[in-house]
């Protein structure tokens, strides 16, 4: 373990804005979240990756300590090594840099259901006290207040990967006592209810937020805070959590992101922004991209 560099700790204040970019090598809360998630992906792990922050964290791991991690996306790309982050799950970059590309039915049957995935990296709109995930609706299913995109591949990733990691921004509307809808099962009602429901895999082993890391407690399976990010207080976490959250007795402090981790992450984001702005160059008008007009083959 590297020694903790006091000078690397930003003040509480600098953690207040999610979007705020830190000074050269002071991480923003969002960067800390990504780095902490990346550290949990071990070398050579076979990892099923969701789009967004999970994808960013998995690729950061691959570019730092886990060059031989195997990244699988549900678009059927296996062992992909994108040089920039994909905007969508089926970007051509994923296919071009993959060991192999298989059909969507094959990825879910032979590779995920077949038990070949060790780690699933998931996001969601809501996570609850027992690590159940909601990406379906806010409010009632039949007449929802907000209709979210829905399940996608998440229910089977949560059920069939040997373990899962959940990445989510920390606020009371996202970390809730009980999710409005269980899209993907965590520990259901806690205790042994996951096993009793017939789920054979381990389930979520950590929830990584921009404030802390929560892990399921041994017997109750309730999420408790096990690790605080630099500069974050217990009170901040308690106020941002939708249940009366508990803290582990052996609560630890997140190691500050190293210069290598941060510079790799920022370079990845820079290259991604550059690549996607090149995509857009000369094609910013919606009407010029009218797909039904005669299109000259590029």
């Amino acid at each position: 373990m590297m020694s903790r560099k006091q000078s690397g700790f930003p003040s509480d204040e600098s953690f207040s804005s999610d979007e705020k970019r830190g000074d050269a090598m002071v991480a923003t809360p969002s960067e800390v979240m990504t780095v902490v998630a990346a550290r949990m992906l071990q070398e050579r792990t076979v990892c099923f990756v969701g789009i967004g922050i999970p994808s960013k964290a998995a690729n950061l791991a691959r570019l730092t300590h886990a060059p031989q991690a195997v990244l699988i996306y549900e678009s059927g790309t296996i062992g992909t090594r994108p040089s920039v982050l994909p905007l969508s799950i089926g970007d051509g970059e994923l296919a071009l840099t993959a060991d192999t590309v298989v059909s969507t039915s094959e990825i879910f049957s032979y590779w995920l259901q077949g038990g070949r995935v060790e780690l699933g990296f998931l996001g969601a709109a809501q996570v609850d006290r027992y690590a159940n995930l909601n990406s379906t609706v806010i409010g009632n299913y039949q007449s929802p207040k907000v209709r979210l995109p829905g399940a996608g591949g998440a229910p089977e990733i949560a059920a069939q990967a040997k373990e899962t990691l959940i990445i989510i921004n920390h606020d009371r509307r996202k970390l809730v006592e009980k999710v409005d809808f269980i899209t993907s099962a965590g520990y259901l009602d806690g205790g042994d209810s996951r096993e009793r429901a017939g789920l054979k895999t381990g389930g979520p082993t950590a929830v990584i937020t921009d404030l802390c890391v929560l892990r399921p407690e041994f017997q109750t399976r309730e999420l408790v805070v096990t690790q605080l990010h630099p500069g974050v207080t217990r009170q901040t976490v308690a106020e941002a959590t939708g249940w009366d959250v508990r803290f582990a007795e052996d609560l630890t402090q997140t190691q500050v992101p190293s210069d290598l981790e941060l510079s790799t992450l920022r370079e990845l984001e820079r290259q991604t922004a550059l690549a996607h702005s090149n995509d857009a160059a000369g094609k910013t008008s919606l009407t010029r991209n009218n797909p039904t007009a005669e299109v000259t083959r590029p």
């Binding site: 259901q113 089977e156 269980i182 899209t183 259901l188 429901a197």
Partner: peptide, 29 residues
């Protein structure tokens, strides 16, 4: 879910009335 959609398609392609999968345990869907 995605997996269920693919199972529904492959069942139809194979001329079967339904597809089977390991899924939806504990999910509200």
């Amino acid at each position: 879910s995605h997996a269920a959609m693919t199972v529904s398609y492959t069942a139809a392609a194979a001329g079967l009335p339904f597809g089977v999968m390991r899924g939806f345990l504990g999910s509200d869907l």
